[in-house]
């Protein structure tokens, strides 16, 4: 069984939130109605999270001072590829940051003062396409980074990981927490349709995550080591807390929010986000804790 890998838990979850936010901003920008204040907020928060995530990852290494060497084996090591994509994501983020700095808040279009569109005036008068392209490239690089992170764990030695599970789970965390955090950051800056869309993405990811976990769990019993991972999950109180705070409670609350005419109070959305955040951290901790590798079972 594995250990509490705090640096890896923080790196993966925070990195995924950061990229999830950028992804959602990109999604919102596609109709040219991304609020510039939200764009700025999103870029700043995601950058901060990305930086903390990258710093946290260093604490996993025995020799963080030599971390640059991790780029040396792009040919076959997913860890090298992960580092490359995350560094490229960070470079792309710097471009987004520059765009956000050029932006002044005077570009107000639309019906209310808080509704600002990206059309033509966005990004300091630069064409909207720049902003959208920047968000798109950052998202794409980030998603490649996340997929590479997940591929690190696809090891023939660890049957519970040697499948599509890690990639799907990591991407689901990105979508789920990305959408929820964008909702929290957006607040009143989001149009009703945008809010609804983000809530639907969150609900969809929660349902998919729940179904996937059930299928995944039933597949684990195929091998002795997989069954050990499954047993670890089912017998750990952490797993049941995770099930409650990141599946059951969000399912219920998201349906309530979606059904309410004003799409829920701010505090309710914040509560769901915090619950899911806690659940995803516990889920990631369990991912590492429950890892059971094929090993020598002879006595020693």
């Amino acid at each position: 069984m594995g250990d509490w890998e705090w640096p890896l838990i923080l790196f993966t979850v925070l990195g995924q939130i950061a990229i999830g936010i950028i992804l959602m901003l990109w999604w919102l920008a596609r109709n040219r109605n991304l609020n510039i204040q939200l764009f700025k907020r999103g870029v700043h928060v995601s950058g901060g999270l990305l930086l903390i995530a990258l710093l946290a990852s260093l604490f996993h290494l025995g020799h963080p001072e030599a971390a640059y060497r991790a780029l040396a084996h792009l040919g076959s090591s997913w860890l090298s590829r992960e580092i490359l994509f995350f560094l490229l994501t960070f470079l792309a983020w710097i471009y987004l940051f520059r765009l956000s700095r050029q932006q002044t808040s005077s570009h107000t279009l639309g019906s209310g003062a808080s509704i600002i569109t990206t059309a033509e005036t966005a990004a300091g008068g630069q064409p909207t396409s720049n902003l959208s392209l920047g968000l798109g490239i950052t998202s794409l690089l980030g998603l490649l980074g996340i997929a590479s992170s997940a591929m690190i764990y696809v090891l023939p030695r660890v049957p519970a990981w040697n499948n599509g599970g890690p990639v799907l789970f990591f991407l689901l965390t990105t979508g789920l927490l990305g959408a929820l955090c964008t909702l929290v950051l957006g607040g009143n800056l989001l149009q009703t349709a945008q809010k609804k869309l983000l809530l639907q993405v969150s609900l969809g990811c929660t349902i998919f995550s729940l179904i996937l976990s059930v299928i995944y769990g039933s597949m684990l019993s195929a091998s002795m080591e997989g069954a050990a991972s499954l047993n670890y999950h089912l017998s750990s109180p952490l797993f049941w807390v995770r099930a409650l705070v990141s599946w059951l409670a969000p399912l219920l609350l998201l349906v309530i929010i979606l059904k309410s005419p004003d799409l829920g109070k701010k505090n309710l959305i914040l509560t769901v986000t915090l619950l899911v955040g806690l659940g995803e951290i516990l889920g990631r901790a369990l991912f590492y804790l429950s890892a059971t590798g094929i090993q020598i079972t002879a006595l020693f």
Partner: peptide
């Protein structure tokens, strides 16, 4: 001399 102590190889080797 090249190792940075990421421990990935210890996870990947079935013989520990």
């Amino acid at each position: 001399n090249r190792c940075i102590g990421c421990r990935l190889c210890t996870m990947a080797c079935p013989y520990d």
